[in-house]
Design a protein around this nucleic acid. Structure first.
Length: 799
RNA sequence: GCGGGCGUGGUGAAAUUGGUAAACACAAGGGACUUAAAAUCCCUCGGCCUUUCGGCCUUGUCGGUUCAAGUCCGACCGCCCGCACCA
């Protein structure tokens, strides 16, 4: 029985696409553009199934849109800076650049076997000076446009590795690699003013109609807008005031203390002559930031002895504490505590025996009977014990009290955001050098544009701790561009999220001498459809949204939102296996027989565990290259699309792969075994069509209609199901005669064109078998459904 | 704690705005072909009752709205995800 030769065909059609430059594009004002982009990979070494899923999804969209007549930009590149390259350098003594470039070569070769419709002429790697020099220029522009500043800030410091760690790299209060307890340290860092755009970024979310609600909500929460008031408390016996931030100014009459953060200037000042307070502040700074540490940490405070004067109650003063639960970088780093209506304040008040006065009563409750025990009352209610606020609801009381504070000149309405400015300095070698020179006389001096790029030195020493750039014998020593005296380069590099914040724009004109080619970005941006993992829901996707606005401010482009549509794909999962000693086993080491799992070689019993995201550590991985080798790219692609919707997790099973492979062969046989009698490409439509054939013809057009809609909505699994149904229908058409043959041909051509976005190599082979010698499916328009065949003769009505 | 999502056969799933639940597959069982196997093809495949015809039940649980509920509303149970001392 004829089998589809995937090896020969996949190679053949990939070469033809490449030779003809099928997927190379340029700006074309006469055609609608469509920019589809998958999140570019970090070149870790080899592609994994997550990549296969991501790029398959993108390729289906790209090929479908191309067939629909769009001018499709579909590029690929490499997010090439990052920590693993440095680890490899330390472990294997390979320079990061070399390691990275080798990985890129391997992964490019692997990706090319997938038959993806990329315009490879646009490929870029962020670790190349040709890319990051533009990033350095952008940073200088950000500096000019007041989007960057340098400040001392508290960072996660790993004392063993001598470097800053990102929050994500701190796991349960310890360095993710060294396991050392992470300390808080103050360090001079570069920051991008993302908070300037907090409101814009928040409002922009509403425009992102083609983003998943989940991601929009996560960004909204991350930005974390809150409305409240700043209140200035007079400090008894001092001239300065204590500014606090509150979202509950309505509860001011229930205030029983004030508290400031350990790093609040007031605390620092008072600690100068007070060793007990100094010790307390140190203790606060040592406190872990992990979830567990925060959950179990007791609310602790240190009475400074200062007393704050209550703004409304004559003669009432409030003790001012330094407290471990007050954060310096939110609001003003100081609060007033109203124990009756805030749980933390209540815990604190119970510990230090402070008054608990209820000022909000549940609606309908008798004011005199309101008692606070262990739980603060935080719901809406009516104000009590609050002078001019008594009887008001919470919302109205807030407004009324702020009006009064403003009249008195001691408070203002205020909006606060949880979002912090983006610290971009990293004490790392394998990143983009920050183009700054530190001069003893001139201070901070930007590297002049004509001196860009500041290139990373190739020869570096990775032995010992700390940043190799800092230890390099010559690299950092330069003359000050301003005064000419000996000075030093900034040895920090950018956070690697910097590169991924603008690569989508660089793809529009990757060879341009300018960072961005204005005509190209104006034509292609925004990205019409972006596809990637949900893990970037906040960081990368928020940074990119900010970056785009910053680039607009600097005159580089005119859009504000980089990604008009977003599809977040689910994870690729696989069952896990362990041997009797509890060691993880690769699926390829396990033989399954029903529910019985055994080791392939030893026959020893194997414990089958739950299905989880494929990960190297649990060994539940299947190598894409092995699958492509054994079944071909089309099989892998079809399987990825068949059973699960793209945003849901996908369970990788051998049986499912077999099923996809069987389908390809079925379609191959259906076409090749039918081509002889229906080979004429220009066969004319017969005048009469028998009823069996007509049913199939209707199915053809209904399928075209349904699949088109499914692909438009990314319901790939449904599209596959429809295509299989039509395959069954065409296969079931046993009639002969010109009408049946004509309909059969309609069916086979439609099937060929409709499977093309999913299994493009097979589609080209089928197209060729059907007699289309001169044309490629890749250049052929999507079939159109004839409305005449979409209506049923009978309609079923349920009563 | 706060916010969000999900729950349908043995499995992945489908069911357009409320309108024949389980399409399309996977797995399983049976059969055909074969010396045998692979491949392929055919049949069965949510549960209960029934020889057949057919009947009754079934979308986590309980209740509600409706001529009609997997879908809408309320409560509960379970699982998953995000954020978290944010004043």
């Amino acid at each position: 029985m004829a089998r589809y030769n995937f090896k020969e065909n996949e190679r053949k059609w990939q070469e033809i696409w490449e030779d003809r430059g099928c997927f190379q594009v340029s700006e074309d004002k006469d055609r609608p553009k469509y920019y589809v982009l998958e999140m570019f990979p970090y070149p870790s070494g080899r592609i994994h199934m997550g990549h296969v899923r991501n790029y398959t999804l993108g390729d289906v969209v790209a090929r479908f849109k191309k067939a629909m007549g769009f001018n499709v930009l579909h590029p690929m590149g490499w997010d090439a800076f990052g920590l693993p390259a440095e680890n490899a350098a330390i472990e294997n003594k390979v320079p990061p650049a070399e390691w990275t470039r080798e990985n890129i070569a391997t992964m490019r070769r692997q990706l090319k076997t997938m038959g993806l419709s990329y315009d490879w002429t646009r490929e870029l790697a962020t670790c190349e000076p040709g890319y990051y020099r533009h990033e350095q220029k952008m940073f200088l522009d950000f500096l000019k446009n007041d989007l960057v500043y340098r400040k001392e800030s508290w960072v996660n410091w790993d004392p063993v590795e001598n470097t800053v760690l990102a929050n994500e790299q701190v796991i349960d209060g310890r360095g993710w690699r060294s396991g050392a307890l992470v300390e808080k340290r103050q360090l001079s860092q570069w920051f991008l003013k993302i908070t300037d755009y907090a409101q814009e970024l928040l409002e922009g979310i509403d425009q992102l109609g083609r983003w998943p609600d989940r991601v929009r909500l996560m960004q909204e929460n991350w930005i974390g807008r809150s409305e409240g008031a700043h209140v200035h408390f007079t400090l008894d016996g001092r001239d300065d005031k204590l500014e606090i931030y509150t979202t509950r100014p309505d509860t001011l009459f229930g205030a029983s203390f004030c508290a400031v953060a350990a790093n609040h200037p007031l605390a620092q000042e008072l600690a100068a002559g007070n060793s007990a307070l100094t010790d307390f502040i140190a203790e606060c700074n040592r406190m872990g930031t992990s979830e567990a540490a925060i959950e179990t940490a007791e609310k602790k405070g240190f009475d400074t002895g200062l007393r704050a004067v209550h703004p409304f109650i004559d003669g009432r003063t409030l003790p001012v504490y330094v407290a471990n639960f007050v954060l310096m970088d939110y609001g003003s780093g100081a609060i007033f505590g109203c124990p009756a209506h805030d749980q933390r304040d209540l815990d604190f008040a119970r510990k230090y025996d402070l008054p608990v006065l209820p000022v909000v009563a549940p609606k309908g409750a008798d004011a005199a009977s309101v008692m606070i025990e262990d739980e603060a009352f935080t719901d809406d209610g009516l104000l009590i014990n609050s002078d001019f606020l008594d009887g008001l609801g919470v919302a109205e009381a807030k407004s009324r009290v702020i009006d009064r504070l403003e009249d008195m000149g001691i408070g203002t309405r205020a909006v606060n955001y949880r979002l912090r400015d983006w610290g971009v300095s990293r004490q790392r070698y394998w990143g983009c050098p920050i183009p700054i020179i530190h001069c003893g006389d001139c201070g901070i001096v930007p590297v002049p544009e004509q001196d860009l790029p500041v290139e990373l030195p190739a020869e570096v020493d990775f032995s010992g701790a700390g940043n190799p750039l800092d230890k390099h014998p010559t690299w950092k020593h330069v003359d000050c561009p301003k005064c000419g005296k000996p000075a030093t380069r900034e040895t920090d590099t950018f956070d690697t999220f910097f590169e991924s914040s603008w690569y989508f724009a660089r793809f529009c004109a990757p060879q341009s001498e300018q960072p961005l080619d204005r005509a190209a970005v104006d034509y292609w941006l925004p990205v019409d459809q972006y596809i990637g993992g949900i893990e970037h829901a906040v960081l990368h996707l928020l940074y990119s949204r900010f970056f785009t606005r910053a680039l607009k401010k600097c005159g580089y482009l005119s859009v504000e939102e980089p990604f008009a549509g977003l599809l977040t794909q689910g994870m690729v999962c696989h069952q896990t296996f362990k041997d009797a000693d509890g060691k993880w086993l690769f699926p390829s080491q396990v033989a399954l027989d029903g529910n019985d799992a055994k080791h392939v070689e030893t026959g020893a019993p194997v414990v089958a565990g739950r299905s989880e995201k494929m990960s190297k550590s649990k060994k539940n991985v299947v190598d894409p290259e092995a699958i492509i080798d054994a079944y071909g790219a089309d099989t892998a692609r079809l399987f990825m699309l068949s059973d699960s919707p793209p945003d849901r997790d996908l369970e990788w099973t051998d049986a499912g792969v077999d099923g996809a492979w069987r389908y390809l062969n079925r379609l191959w046989r259906l076409v090749t075994e039918n081509t002889a009698p229906i080979a004429a490409v220009d066969m004319a439509k017969p005048d009469t069509i028998g009823s069996a054939a007509e049913d199939v013809l209707k199915a053809v057009h209904k399928t075209i209609d349904g699949v088109s809609q499914d692909l438009e909505k990314f319901h790939f699994n449904k599209a596959v199901a429809r295509i299989r149904e039509l395959t069954n229908a065409v296969e079931g058409l046993k009639e002969t005669g010109p009408d049946a043959e004509w309909v059969r041909r309609q069916g086979l051509e439609a099937l060929t064109l409709m499977v093309a976005p999913m299994t493009p190599h097979l589609a080209e082979a089928l197209w060729h078998e059907l007699g289309h010698d001169g044309s490629l499916v890749a250049d052929t328009a999507w079939p159109t459904a004839d409305a005449a065949y979409l209506v049923d003769d009978t309609v079923t009505v349920a009563v």
